[in-house]
Structures are given as C-alpha cells and as structure tokens.
C-alpha cells in the first residue's frame, strides 16, 4: 500500500508537468483547431534560456520569471511570423508548419547548446515528506502547477482580456464584430501557451536532465493527456495529464519494465477513448449540416 501511494504521488508530480503542457496544447487547439507539435520543443528551448540565466548566476526564481516573459514574447512572435501565413490554409499545412517548427527548434538547440545532457538545478530540496510518501520536490512541482492553474483560471474568468480571448476562440467572426482584435488574441494565446510550456520544461528539467530531446516523450504524454481529458476542455487537459502521469507510473511499477511503459500506457488510453471518443470531459464535435 505504501509503495502504491508513493507511486501515485510521484505520478501526480510528473502528471502535473504533463498537465501543464496539455493545457498549452488545448489552449492553442481551442483557438485555432491546431495541434501544435512544436509545443514541447518550444518548452525545451525556453528551458535552455532559463539554464543560461541560472548559469549566469541569476537567482532561480528571477530566472524563472524572466524566462516566462521571454517565452511569452517568443510565443507571440512565432504566432505572428510563423503561424499567421497558414492561418487560412488547410489544417494539414498548418500541422506541417508546426512539425517544421519542431525540427527547427530541436536542431537550433542542438547547435547552440550541444546534445550533451546538462544538469538543471531544482528550486526545491529533495527531502522525504509524510513518512516517505512523497518528496518535497514532488510537492513543489505540484504546487507550482496548481498556482499557475489558479492564475490562468483567474485570468480567463476575471479579466477583460481573458473574456475577449474566450470569445475569440469560441466564435472568431462574432468576436470580431464586437470589436475584439481576434488576431491579437491568438498571439496572446500562443504567448501564454509558450509560457505555460516553459514552466513545464523548467519543472521537468531537474528530473529528466536538459537536452534537446528532453520534451519529445513529455509532449507525447501531454498530447495523450489532453485528448484523454477532451481536447476542447482545459479542466479535462489538467485531469487527463494527471491521470496519464499516474497511469504511466503504476504501469511501470506493477505491470511491465520501463521499456514498454509508453506503449502500454498509450494502449490503455486508446481503450478508454474507444468508449469515450471525445475524451472524458470533451464535448462532441458538432457540425452544422
């Protein structure tokens, strides 16, 4: 039982990271019907920025904040420069653009920072808590994710910009008629998604070590989490990400060696989706006939 709970808590910690990235995916999907394959590599790149800042003796939390700001601006620039030209193109063209972006970020990171594993400092001490049920690091990761979620929720619920962004995502044409600058909202959405991704990257880097391939697996889990929760539902993305994290850990502990962990986790989730094709919290895609 102790082992079980231990694994659940450690799964929740990695699940929180998947949940963050899943949330970033859902934000962009809701606004543009586009799965951003570059989300993970953008987060990886942001993490390298944080790593450079920390190495330049910037205090950790200052580096964290600076990285979020840089990522936010970077995300907006990417939307304006890279994604906007295919805004009205077929979806597959936009998907290919994000795949191209993935390759570019990956190669750039390898070129600028080399492919060697880098150690990344954790802001949280690694001490056992509650009779070794979890560590302070796990707790810290979960806390950071929860704080970020609360802030996002408040932003979308209580600010005018948040409301405008929701409107722009739900019905761009009507939103535009109401005077909302839909293009700007999209850019802000990409910026926010990039910042959320950066948080996920910085949280995961102390565990996985930093290298250009760091986020590829994480992105897959995040994508799975987002779909499990329902790609149209932000709350679903968070819950889905947490479920994926716990499932992955339990499968790895009880069922099978870590090599096939990913495959088994994916198969389990596909089975769940077979019964709930729109995810646990997603709404069915409805089309006007």
């Amino acid at each position: 039982m102790h082992l079980f709970l231990q694994q659940v808590f450690s799964g929740l910690a990695s699940g929180a990271i998947y949940a963050s990235l899943a949330l970033a995916l859902v934000m962009i999907y809701r606004a543009t019907d586009l799965v951003n394959f570059a989300q993970g590599e953008m987060a990886m790149f942001s993490t390298y920025i944080a790593w450079m800042l920390v190495n330049a003796a910037v205090p950790f939390w200052a580096a964290f904040a600076l990285t979020l700001i840089v990522s936010f601006i970077g995300g907006m620039v990417i939307e304006r420069v890279v994604v906007r030209p295919v805004e009205n193109a077929p979806v597959l063209a936009a998907v290919v653009v994000t795949i191209g972006l993935l390759l570019i970020f990956n190669a750039l990171a390898g070129w600028l920072f080399t492919y060697t594993l880098q150690e990344f400092p954790s802001p949280f001490p690694d001490r056992p808590l509650f009779g070794a049920l979890m560590t302070t690091r796990d707790l810290g990761v979960i806390a950071v994710t929860l704080i970020m979620l609360a802030l996002l929720f408040a932003f979308f619920r209580f600010t005018a910009t948040g409301l405008a962004m929701r409107a722009a995502a739900q019905n761009p044409a009507s939103a535009r008629l109401c005077g909302i600058r839909v293009g700007r909202m999209l850019a802000i959405g990409w910026g926010l998604a990039a910042a959320i991704g950066a948080t996920a990257g910085i949280m995961v880097a102390p565990i996985l070590f930093l290298d250009p391939e760091m986020m590829s697996g994480v992105l897959l889990y995040a994508f799975t989490g987002a779909l499990l929760g329902g790609i149209t539902s932000p709350v679903g993305a968070v819950i889905g990400g947490l479920i994926v994290g716990v499932t992955e850990n339990l499968v790895g502990t009880y069922l099978i060696a870590s090599q096939l962990k990913l495959t088994v986790a994916l198969i389990l989730i596909v089975i769940v989706l077979a019964f709930r094709p729109n995810g646990l919290f997603g709404t069915a895609i409805v089309r006007r006939v």
Partner: peptide, 21 residues
C-alpha cells in the same frame, strides 16, 4: 553541417507558405 534539420524544417515552412495545398 551544423543544423541540417533546421534547414529541413525551414524547407517545410517555405513549401507550405508558397503552396499550402
């Protein structure tokens, strides 16, 4: 030589901009 995959990615972008279909 340094970042061939970046060029590959860039080629994808350019093709999609020029000919989205």
């Amino acid at each position: 030589d340094a970042a061939p995959w970046a060029i590959y990615g860039l080629a994808m972008l350019l093709f999609m901009y020029a000919m989205p279909r």
